[in-house]
Design a protein around this nucleic acid. Structure first.
Lengths: 227, 227
DNA sequence: ATCTCGTCAATTGTTAACAATCAACCATTC
DNA sequence: GAATGGTTGATTGTTAACAATTGACGAGAT
């Protein structure tokens, strides 16, 4: 009985975790809009859970930065201001630069295979997929690289920040410039990574995130002064 | 009725927040040791609160990274491994580098006054204070600088990481090399900041955090192979 | 007309009881 | 003697009822 490699345990997840997952999906997919008010009783009814459990789930999302708690008043889905976008972008830039350096320093063939596979998905999505697929592939590539850093806190922090930025991307429709540009950018991003050049990788990731941030902020400022 | 400048509102804080604050102090001061097991019932009795409220407080500390939740099993105070120390140090380095750059870019006379005041406290603690005072002043200086960045998420993230590192400093007794060295290091740290040299400040903060991290890791590895 | 103040509905904060789960222990079996 | 399986006590997970707080609304005074 030793041949079993990966036998997933049945998902025994606490209900508040499950509720948090469900809510997170709804928020990130845009089903629940930024700024929306969440009330415990309503959610409890929809999830067929008690308020206490829903409350625990909401606390989780507060910790993730997706929901804001206002004492005795309610729970709101995060709405991103220009300041928020700036904060998230600068943080993301620093974290990705660190990840780029770490991964470039330690990458091996297995790591290279993971990066290349994620990049191939991105290239494929750029060819034939829709805009949503491209965004998914984009995020997946970045997540894969950050995951290769072997840095748990970096991975988690990056995930939270990426989610908050995604919240904005989902609510606005700032999707995709030309798909080729996205592909090319990422190609030059992973090149120093695969080559193991730490300094170049760090610089490339920092620049990539900064540029992405500038685009988001520009979009926000354009939206902030509507016609 | 306009002369009132700072009249603190009566502390209307939810009980779970208050409980979390109390627990956090106990953990950071070393009163509760790393690795200690926390049980809801016991804490509820000590705080004279219900388990539900204690539970909410524990969830907060989990979000802060000071406590680990093991489903159906219990709550443990974080114990730092060498891996943890490496993760925290590398993250701290990146965040401080970002803070150094931002503050150097935007510092004004008011900001300079804050930094210099914090540095004076540090220098004074180095002269006459005890080791604990010096650590406090050290952290206060860094917190003050990060606060000047005007970056809420950066400040919060930095605070969490600093707390976790502090947990280690409190539990081990790796306090203070020569106090003069601490003072001198910080002097050369804030010099480019006050001068407004963003590149130099970023580099100085990164180097400072890296060195600090190396010391912690060295200490941990020494302790990991005990006599 | 506007400002003040009390009232009330809606919502979160808190508690205590009940259910599910885990980890250790011990008898039992092979 | 080691592995198995049930039992039990301790602990967390979940629920529903009760308390406290908020914000809006309107009556009444100025």
């Amino acid at each position: 009985m030793s041949g079993i490699t990966s036998l997933e345990p049945p998902k025994r997840q606490s209900l508040d975790r499950a509720a948090a997952d469900s809510l997170r999906r709804a928020i990130l997919s845009g089903l629940i809009a930024p700024g929306a008010r969440l009330t415990e009783a309503k959610l409890a009814e929809q999830f067929m859970l008690s308020r206490g459990t829903v409350r625990a789930a909401l606390h989780r999302l507060v910790a993730e930065g997706l929901v804001i708690q206002r004492p005795y008043s309610g729970w709101d889905v995060l709405t991103l201001t220009v300041q928020d976008a700036w904060e998230l972008s600068t943080l993301r830039s620093s974290l990705e630069a660190l990840a780029g350096r770490l991964v470039a320093q330690s990458i091996d063939d297995a790591g290279r295979a993971i990066v290349m596979s994620a990049y191939d998905h991105l290239a494929q999505a750029a060819e034939e997929g829709g805009e949503v697929d491209l965004v998914e592939a984009d995020m997946a590539l970045h997540q894969a690289i950050v995951g290769l850093s072997g840095h748990r806190r970096l991975r988690e922090q990056y995930g939270l920040i990426a989610n908050q930025l995604r919240l904005y991307i989902a609510s606005s429709n700032m999707l995709a410039k030309t798909t080729e540009a996205v592909r090319d950018r990422h190609h030059s991003l992973i090149a120093p990574l695969l080559a193991g050049d730490a300094d170049a990788a760090e610089a490339a990731f920092r620049a990539h995130a900064v540029r992405s941030g500038e685009e988001i902020i520009a979009h926000l400022e354009r939206a902030a002064i509507p016609g």
